[in-house]
Write a protein that binds this DNA or RNA. Sequence first.
DNA 1: GCAATTGATGTAATAACATTACATGGCAAT
DNA 2: ATTGCCATGTAATGTTATTACATCAATTGC
Lengths: 131, 131
Amino acid sequence: MATPQLTKNQSLVMGALAHSEGPMSAYTILDKLRDQGFRAPLQVYRALDKLLEYGLVHRLESLNAFVACTCPDDHEHDRGVTAFTICEGCGQVTEFHDEAIEERLSTLVRGQNFKTEKTTIEIRGHCSSCA
Amino acid sequence: MATPQLTKNQSLVMGALAHSEGPMSAYTILDKLRDQGFRAPLQVYRALDKLLEYGLVHRLESLNAFVACTCPDDHEHDRGVTAFTICEGCGQVTEFHDEAIEERLSTLVRGQNFKTEKTTIEIRGHCSSCA
DNA sequence: GCAATTGATGTAATAACATTACATGGCAAT
DNA sequence: ATTGCCATGTAATGTTATTACATCAATTGC
């Protein structure tokens, strides 16, 4: 699916995430956008739902937080599995992709006759600066 | 670390999870244990913290829920990465381990000079029965 | 024996994250 | 102009997790 033009709220949330150093919770985003007229969590969650759907944003399950996708290229075709390292020290999040892992997981779940819809890979630890 | 004798609350929580079909949220566990004297979430969370530490229980980040570990053998030595398939249809959770993925992830994060402490792999989708 | 320490527990309150329900407004297609 | 669709606004509520503080029991060292 081609990414459609973002609505006002979607653009504001996308902008907040894109300019952020690291991940933000929905409520942190809400606070950042109070000055632009945001009043309720739902405004943020609705925008996030769409941005997730378009692949412009990722949800970090282990943090209950969201980050802008850092893929340089287009988000339109399926990017396969996305994985993250998350530093407990500085909060830095690094997104990466790997075909080998993708294929290995694919093989393993096929053995269960399991049909994958979404894969979460999150590695918590310490980055080189915070070791 | 050897698993110590479980306390009363830890045993009750462990029992609830072990006898459950699938994952349970902390509050669901609380409700199950009201008759045994549980009154507050903290009683559950404290027990879960210890059970997670001992490796007897896993936390499913994408569900905010907990499952008993299904490894048949001892939990005492490091089991490496644990991964799960989670069926959206029936809620069934299957735990699995794979050395190849472990090694590949290890290689990838070493390239970032990242020191892994905990790895989360959760695959949401549909199991063979619910496809 | 007995203070000091440690770890488990109990209770209440609150914080943090997410959704449901319902009403409104804009805009395109017919 | 009516209909349908989608984005939005607002309030209330539901769900998950933590902080703060008090108590109790077992152990250790003196």
